[in-house]
Design a protein around this nucleic acid. Structure first.
Lengths: 219, 219
DNA sequence: CGGGCGTATAAACCTAGGTATGATTCAACG
DNA sequence: CGTTGAATCATACCTAGGTTTATACGCCCG
């Protein structure tokens, strides 16, 4: 599997064979890779969840509710952009779907161009999501390589404490803090303290953040 | 005008007198302050935009389109949470409204409880928005007090450059950079460099920082 | 025209950060 | 049982950051 394939892979879940074939034809002719499923279970079983760039989901499925399935996906870590469609939609359903993050909500029958525009938007959102995820992954793998002590020091360094304060807080000598600090800067590939602070922000590593503002510095 | 009043002030725009009275009655009995308007122009003229906690907006207005007005509000800096309602809604209208950030989209006639729940959600969103705005305002007013030179230095400091590099970049001596740096730290009320970096992030002052981590493998 | 402000700079002095080199303890792994 | 790696600390040395005091130039406002 190549890398850039993600951005053209579209999955379809609809219990109507005719709709599946129509979408397959439409999307293939637009240059997308298409995988069709009759049920959410089939989709999950195929484990396309990881490679799919977006999901076109029918709401009225035999034995299942597309909106419920959308929210299951949302609750799991699988945040693939979803385009909802239905032949029996109303406004409350639309509101619920959009609030749950759907890219679009199309009433059947829909215009081909509307679907293609929705898919383009969904794939753009997917690409952005993947890029952000990759960015975070690099950081997280660096962070994972830190020893527990280095993480403690990193938290206090990025909270703005001086080495001697960190030493006091952790019951260490200042020189030891310096060594941990140098090691973690190397492991995190941070070129500067400003870099490290931004990394910490991106990681959400705000464990120690309490008592920063308003805390007295002297003493 | 008191401060906490924002969180209970609800504005209604509907060209139907009966709807306005019904909503006024419902919302007042729920403890909210209500202001009703017949047209978007009347709403804007009353300048409730600043004190309103949320806006209940009809879509089919005489001589105006509520969805267009919603997007005008979005385009302006006035980001008051909007609840849309209509007696003649369809799915594309709902999608458009929700994509434009509406809190909810209610078809008339709606249940009182649905409206009250929507208002509660909108006001919660409004409170959060105001809190974030206040947080940013303190920073921005500090930042506004910086001289142009101090801002240049701040940008380079938060980008992770050393004083001597900044001096070279700006054609100054290192001592001058130190002075600007000290001055801006005081003006920004930053207790540490880490603090300042976070402030710069919050201010969106990212001129120099283009994609520092994540992709680069070697320096 | 004088005072305030922004900008720039220097000398002196102090604190904080960072890197070697070398050494010890302890626990885990083969 | 020896090695490896985390963690600890010391001495020494160097660089970077930061303040104080003082000087100087140009600009605008009263």
């Amino acid at each position: 599997m190549s890398e850039s394939q993600h951005e053209t892979c579209v999955c379809v879940i609809d219990d109507d064979e005719g709709v599946r074939q129509a979408l397959d034809s439409l999307l293939r002719s637009a240059g997308f890779t298409v995988h069709c499923f009759e049920t959410p279970e089939a989709f999950l079983a195929a484990d396309e969840s990881d490679g799919a760039g977006c999901l076109i989901l029918d709401i009225r499925l035999r034995g299942a509710n597309g909106l419920d399935f959308q929210q299951e996906l949302l609750a799991s870590d699988n945040a693939v952009p979803v385009i909802l469609m239905t032949g029996y939609g109303d406004i409350p359903m639309t509101v619920r779907g959009m609030k749950a993050g759907a890219v679009n909500f199309l009433a059947k029958p829909f215009a081909d161009d509307d679907m293609l525009a929705a898919v383009a938007e969904a794939l753009a959102r997917s690409a952005e999501r993947r890029a952000a995820s990759r960015r975070g992954d690099g950081l997280r793998s660096s962070y994972a390589s830190l020893t527990p002590r280095e993480r403690e020091v990193m938290a206090l360094v990025t909270a703005g404490l001086m080495n001697k304060q960190i030493a006091g807080r952790l019951g260490l000598s200042e020189i030891t803090v310096k060594i941990h600090r140098g090691n973690l800067m190397r492991k995190m590939q941070a070129q500067s303290l400003a870099d490290l602070v931004r990394m910490a922000e991106a990681l959400g590593a705000r464990e120690t953040s309490a008592a920063r503002y308003g805390a007295t510095t002297g003493g």
